[in-house]
């Protein structure tokens, strides 16, 4: 994957514009998903994804191939997402965001889920409820913990790569992840008992 990304970058730098759009089509969904889970607002996440690719486009000339391209683009995206959270904090907009309300319409429809005969309607509704709960709980995490948690639990990145994306040590990544999960566990504990 790394080679093909670097190859696309080299092709773009050699003047092949379409190589850039190949990178776009490869990373647009993961980056949109990542930013949405961080900031909890789909429309803003799409804007920030666009901004991420603009920055990539402008600075591809300075990209060093000894880093994985995916690490680099996630780093840009996480910086933009964290900046957005800081901006909201300064403006006092934290309370205004409602993750569930801003959830994109890309989820599996309940009727599709009900088509799975092994699951009851109650289970499907419970699942949807829990998704809403976890998304809301993620939004309450401090940004540093939230980013690590999303990269690990949602994007399924290993600790080392998370450290490279966020520019922090392995120990810091583990400690933040542990703290994030503990906080989530506390927040979701009342619902755990109902299962």
């Amino acid at each position: 994957m790394q080679d093909s990304d670097n190859e696309l970058v080299q092709r773009y730098l050699a003047g092949e514009e379409d190589a850039f759009y190949s990178l776009v089509s490869k990373y647009k969904n993961p980056i949109t998903n990542f930013i949405t889970r961080i900031i909890g607002n789909y429309d803003q996440a799409v804007d920030l994804t666009q901004e991420t690719f603009l920055r990539v486009y402008k600075s591809l000339g300075s990209y060093r191939s000894d880093y994985q391209f995916s690490t680099w683009i996630y780093r840009i995206a996480s910086n933009l997402a964290i900046d957005e959270l800081r901006w909201r904090k300064r403006r006092g907009l934290f309370g205004r965001q409602n993750a569930s309300r801003e959830e994109p319409e890309k989820e599996t429809a309940p009727e599709e889920q009900l088509a799975d005969t092994r699951r009851s309607a109650d289970e499907v509704l419970a699942d949807m409820q829990y998704r809403k709960l976890i998304q809301e709980a993620i939004q309450t995490l401090p940004p540093a913990y939230r980013t690590v948690f999303v990269l690990n639990a949602v994007e399924e990145m290993d600790y080392e790569k998370i450290g490279q994306v966020l520019g922090c040590s392995l120990g810091t990544v583990k400690s933040r992840l542990h703290r994030a999960k503990s906080l989530l566990q506390k927040k979701l504990a009342p619902y755990w008992k109902k299962i």
Binding site: Y21, K28, N33, R37, Y42, A45, R131, V154
Partner: peptide, 25 residues
């Protein structure tokens, strides 16, 4: 409970960029 939290996070649906993302970009 710890594993349940991880499962819930992993079970979140993948969000995709809008269809006209590349055109807009």
């Amino acid at each position: 409970q710890w594993q349940w939290v991880s499962r819930l996070a992993k079970g979140l649906p993948r969000v995709e960029a809008p269809g006209d993302f590349e055109i807009r970009l």
